[in-house]
Design a protein around this nucleic acid. Sequence first.
RNA 1: GCGCCCUUAGCUCAGUCGGAUAGAGCAACAGCCUUCUAAGCUGUGGGUCACUGGUUCGAAUCCAGUAGGGCGCGCCA
Length: 593
Amino acid sequence: MNSDLFALIRGRVGAALAASAAAVPEDVLARIEVSPPREAAHGDMASNAAMVAAKAVGQPPRVLAETLARHLATAPEIAAAEVAGPGFLNIRLHPAALHAVIPAILAAGEAYGDATIGAGERVNVEYVSANPTGPMHIGHCRGAVVGDALANLLAKTGFAVTREYYVNDSGAQVTALAWAAYWRYLRAIGSDIAAEDFAARAPSGLQYRGEYLIPVGAALAEKFGRSLAAEDGGVAPPEMWFERVRDCAIAAMMAAIREDLDLLGVRPDVFASERELVASGAVEAVIARLAQAGLIYEGVLAPPKGKLPEDWEPREQTLFRATQFGDDVDRPLRKSDGSATYFANDIAYHADKIGRGFTTLIDVWGADHGGYVARMQAAIRALAGDRARFDVLLCQIVHVLKGGQPVRMSKRAGTFVTLRDLIEEVGRDVVRFIMLTRKSDAQMEFDLDQAVAETRENPVFYVQYAHARCRSVLRHAAEQGFPTTPEALAGVALDSLADAAELALIRRLAGWPRLVEGAARAFEPHRIAFFLYDLAGDFHILWNRGREAATLRFIQPERPAETGARLALVAATAMVIRSGLAVMGVAPVEEMR
RNA sequence: GCGCCCUUAGCUCAGUCGGAUAGAGCAACAGCCUUCUAAGCUGUGGGUCACUGGUUCGAAUCCAGUAGGGCGCGCCA
C-alpha cells in the first residue's frame, strides 16, 4: 500500500472527480485537500474537493459533492462518504484501511514519512555562522537547532541538503579580536598593561575582554616568546604581530565553536571562510558582474526619513540598484576607503553557493538581521533571476528564565550564558527539543525549571516518556515470550484494534507523512515537536486506560492474538516517535532513568 | 519618520497554500484514584482571534487602514 494514507485517499478523491466531471484545471486540483477533520464525529478524513472544484465544474458544491461521494463509496478503503455543511466530503474508512498503516510503519521503520517532494534538488542551509570572536552563547543556539532540524527535515523529504557555516573571519570584528588576543598575549609575557591603557592604544578599543582569550594569549606567548612585543614588553607596531595573532585567535575561536556545536550535535558539512572568498577575488568578480549588467552606479543616497542621524552628511558611494529588485533603497557595496562592504562580500558568498549548483538557498539568521533580507533577496534575483530560490528564517530572541526570573545576559558583566553552560545544565536533547517548541519567528522563553521538570508541562519529558513506555511494553512482552520484532509484528492480525483510543492513535500515526511534508514545504521544523507532543498524548491516554481496565492493557497473556495486535501498534508508535525525534536531532530514551 | 515581524482563553502557545461549533498545556473549579504498567486520571468553566473596513459561498488566516509590542534603518558584521 501507499505508506501515506492521506495521499492514497486524496488520489481516490482525484479519481472520483475525474470520473464525474470534465477536465479540471491543474491549479484547482492542487488546492484539493484531504485532511483530518476537526471533529472526530465527522469521520476519518475530510475533503474540500467539491467546494474547490465547484466553479470549474459548473455545479453547486453540494451537488458535485453528492456525485463524488457516490464514486468514493466504491473505493476499497472507504466505508462511507457523505456530504456535510457547505459541501465537505466526510470520509469514513474501513478499519482494515486504518490498520494497514501499522505494517506499513513497521516495514518502513524510521523511513516512514520520508517523501520525494525534494526530487533531489540541491539545497544549501546556512546556519549558526556566529562570528569567531568568542564562545557560542544562547543567542546562537536557537538558529543552530532550527537550521539543523530544517536540514534534517529537508533531507527526509528528498532534498539533497548541504549544511553550511559561514565564517566571518574578515573585517572589523576580527580585527578587534586580534587586538584583544594581543592584549592577553602581552599580559601572558609579563606586561602589566591595564585594559583601559591598552584600549586607548588599540584602533577600535578593547572590545573582547572575556577571560576566554587568556589561553589564546598564553598559547601565543608559548609559541612566539617575546618576539611579538616591543622591546619593553609593550605594544609593538601591528605589522610585527597582527596577522599571526589574528590567525591564531581565529583558529582558537573556531576550534571552540566546533566543540560547542559538537556538544549540541550540530556538524556542518562545509565551513566557508569569508577571508578565503575575498582573497580569491570573488568579491571583485561579482561587483564586476553587477557592473556589467548595469546594476551599479556612483551616487548619493537620500538620508533616512524622519529624524536625521547626528553625523549625517551626503556621501558619494558605489551603489547596487537593489530598488530594481524590490528593496527600498539602493545599497552600498564599497566603503569610502574603496574596500568592499559586508554586503558585497555576502553577495559574493551567495553567488558562490549558486555557482556550486544549489538552486535553493536557505539562511537562518537572528531577527536583528531582518532589515537585511530584502537587499540579499534583491542581490540574488539580480544574479540568478528565478534560477535560484532564496529564503531566510529569522529566529527571534530567546529569554532564559530561572525560578521564574529572567536571567540577564551581559557580555561586559561576564554573566552571559554560554551554550556549554546551558547544555551542561539541562542536556543536549532538552536544549534541542525546547528550541523547536516555538515558531522560529516568535519570541521564546526558555524556562530552565520547566526544562528539567518531570511533568506534562515539559514536552521533552512527555514525549520521551511515551517512547520509553512503548519500549518498556515491548521488553516485558519479549520476556513473556511474545514476538516483538518489527518483522514479526508486521504480519499479525489487527482486527481486534477497535477501541476508540486505539483508533485515534492509529489516525495520528497515519498523519505523520502528511505532517512531515507540510512542515518541509513551509520550512517549519517546529511542527514536528507539536506533532510528537500530540502523538505522545494519544499514547498516554491509551496507557492510562489500562490502569483502570485490566483488559485494555497491552499485554494479555491469555489472549495472544489481541496482544500481538496491540504490540504492533505500540511498536509502530515508538517507531514514529523515533522518526520525529531523529528529525529534531534528539535521541530517544529506552527507559526513564 | 520609514521598513520588516508580531498581537488568539487569566498565563505560555498551536492552528495545515481561506473551510464546518477556533484548540492544547498550565492556572481555576468539580469529581475520582491512593494504585502499581512508571512520575496520577476524568470532567467543567473560560475567547469580540488587538480594532475598523474590504475581498468571497466561507476569513484567526488574504488586502487596506488604526492601536500596541519587538527588530532594523548610509562605509557593524
